[in-house]
Design a protein around this nucleic acid. Structure first.
Length: 578
DNA sequence: ATAGGGTTAG
């Protein structure tokens, strides 16, 4: 039996509800003030009550609001409800899916739009092309470009701008430039200029990017930021900085770009200085800024600065998203506080691969191999697929715990079960694993079996193993390789010299010292490092007895050691109880 | 009623 009534046409509804348009505008206003899923659902219920769920204007507004609040499933159910969605509804859906990082869904919606014979507009194509870029759908995007030509929207600057970005994301700047050249005179606005500059920057062609930038008559902050980011990514922090200094108005993106620039160049102190400068200038950082600066703190290993930043995050009510979450997990474990690292992990509402990898790496470097492996299996049971970085940590965990067989098994499983081709990093882990366990022949055999050239890390691992397990023969092989790979690395050479000395091979000792002198390599202050106490950075070195802080440091290390020993026990129970 | 610029794990 058919229970549903025939669809009410808007004309019918208007007849029965003369004040419908007023009611709709009230609901649309309410929609703009919605801050939660519940509020959205309640407005939707009201819309159904007055039959506005068949009004495309209302539904367009509703869908757009849902998408901007990342509630794409509500948008989906709204679309399903509409008997005859018009082009505005489809446009809102496609744009929303792209906004919510569901590009494949956008392509699907475009297909059903075509099936329903709804003709696309320039709005449709600009969103759809963006979706093709996100979905890495080059062929589909190209065919859409064909359709764009046929329908004449290739003269629309919004569509052209989307196409410039689309081709650039596949490395085809030449194609991007072709589209840009086609933009009619007077049609080029600051958006398309900026997009073309970004296209050149992402291709590493900073000369062309700069030429465009210099030829612009009207620039805005985004244009400056795009160029700064281009220099930053190409490793030219000098140009990035000088542009940053002379730009007329700096916003949070300008500052964040500079912080990321210094972080990438491993100049973490300067990154922190930039962050402080940003705060001092009165700007309020957002989640993106915070995850960048946390990463810089992680590499600094400074728990004091790190906790200061975390306190700042909690005080200013930043969302604990996957970016901030994974960088905090990493920061705490690198700064020595696995407890805090785990606490952040448990607090996260959503966890992506970065979060899991940060945690597993943290457990691995703290020597908690069982914890790392346990978390790996938890990760799998939550249907999160590991990648090659996960396996670097897993193999490292095995190495630190001396689990040779376990490590070999995981190396095999990685290749066979997970179809991950081993990288030089994985071989490095395995060589390290064998070397530390004294299986020096196996390590050498593995190096010889590799299809690519072993790097200095790999030879260095084996050399370290040779030193511990007293194998001068293989040590010499490593030494030769390292001499040509890193002739200026004193550490490696001194290790070999010491081994010769231990074996009373004084002739070789003299020879090596002579070669090192000839290379201009002098032995530096041994075992230099630095630590931060009370916000101050103290440099120190091995056997640095005269240093003002050495007593304090020694005491601190003793305390730290005791704490680590104690917390190791807790860690295992925390992991097992997860 | 659209669109451009910055983010995390090794």
């Amino acid at each position: 039996m058919q229970l549903t009534t025939a669809p009410l046409s808007m004309a019918n509804v208007l007849e029965r509800q003369p004040d419908l348009l007023d009611r709709i505008s009230v609901l649309v206003d309410q929609l703009k003030g919605c801050c939660s899923r519940r509020e959205l659902q309640s407005v939707f219920a009201s819309m159904i009550k007055i039959s506005a769920d068949q009004d495309c204007f209302s539904m367009n507004q509703f869908i757009s609001r849902c998408s901007s609040m990342s509630q794409s499933d509500l948008a989906d159910s709204a679309l399903a409800q509409i008997e005859e969605p018009n082009v505005f509804v489809y446009n809102a859906m496609i744009r929303g899916s792209v906004q919510c990082s569901r590009p494949l869904q956008a392509l699907e919606q475009y297909r059903s739009m075509s099936r329903a014979d709804v003709r696309p507009t320039s709005y449709t194509f600009s969103s759809l092309i963006k979706g093709c870029g996100l979905a890495k759908a080059l062929r589909f995007g190209e065919s859409v470009h064909g359709g764009i030509w046929k329908s004449g929207f290739n003269w629309h600057v919004f569509v052209q701008t989307a196409l410039i970005e689309f081709y650039a994301s596949f490395g085809g700047v030449a194609e991007s430039r072709k589209v840009w050249d086609e933009i009619q005179d007077g049609g080029r606005d600051v958006f398309s200029w900026t997009t073309m500059i970004s296209a050149y920057a992402s291709a590493g062609d900073m000369l062309s990017a700069r030429r465009l930038f210099d030829g612009m008559h009207e620039r805005n902050t985004a244009t400056w930021n795009a160029l700064i980011d281009g220099y930053a990514r190409s490793g030219d922090s000098i140009s990035a900085r000088s542009l940053f200094e002379c730009m007329p108005v700096k916003d949070i993106i300008s500052w964040t770009t500079m912080i990321a620039c210094y972080t990438q160049e491993q100049r973490y102190q300067e990154a922190v200085a930039m962050f402080k400068g940003m705060i001092a200038s009165g700007l309020i950082p957002d989640e993106v800024t915070m995850s960048t600066i946390i990463s810089a703190c992680a590499h600094l290993g400074s728990l004091d600065i790190g906790r200061e930043i975390h306190y700042y995050i909690m005080q200013n009510q930043f969302q604990l998203d996957v970016f901030i979450g994974s960088s905090l997990i990493d920061m705490y474990s690198k700064c020595g506080s696995l407890e805090r690292s785990l606490m952040v992990f448990y607090k996260l509402r959503e966890r992506n691969l970065f979060c899991w990898n940060s945690l597993i790496e943290g457990l691995a470097v703290h020597g908690l191999a069982k914890g790392a492996l346990l978390m790996f299996s938890k990760m799998e049971s939550e249907k999160m697929n590991p990648n090659w970085i996960t396996f670097v940590s897993i193999l490292n965990a095995c190495t630190h715990a001396g689990l040779v067989n376990e490590g070999q098994r995981w190396f095999m499983r990685m290749k066979e079960d997970y179809r991950i081709t081993p990288r030089v990093e994985h071989y490095g882990c395995m060589v390290d694993l064998f070397s530390r366990a004294g299986l020096l022949e196996d390590a050498l055999g593995l190096i010889r079996s590799m299809e690519f050239e072993p790097n200095a890390f790999i030879w260095g691992s084996l050399l370290g193993g040779c030193r511990v397990h007293r194998n001068l023969e293989i040590a010499q092989v490593c030494g030769d390789a390292l001499m040509s790979l890193e002739p200026n690395n004193t550490g490696h050479h001194m290790l070999l010299v010491n081994m010769y000395a231990e074996n009373n091979r004084w002739g070789e000792v003299v020879n090596m010292r002579r070669t090192m002198k000839g290379n201009g390599v002098e032995k530096e202050f041994p075992g230099q490092s630095w630590i931060e106490i009370g916000g101050e950075t103290c440099q120190f070195a091995a056997s640095d007895g005269n240093h003002a802080v050495s007593d304090q440091l020694f005491f601190f290390l003793k305390k730290l050691d005791a704490q680590i020993r104690l917390s190791n026990i807790d860690m295992h129970s925390i992991c097992t109880n997860y």
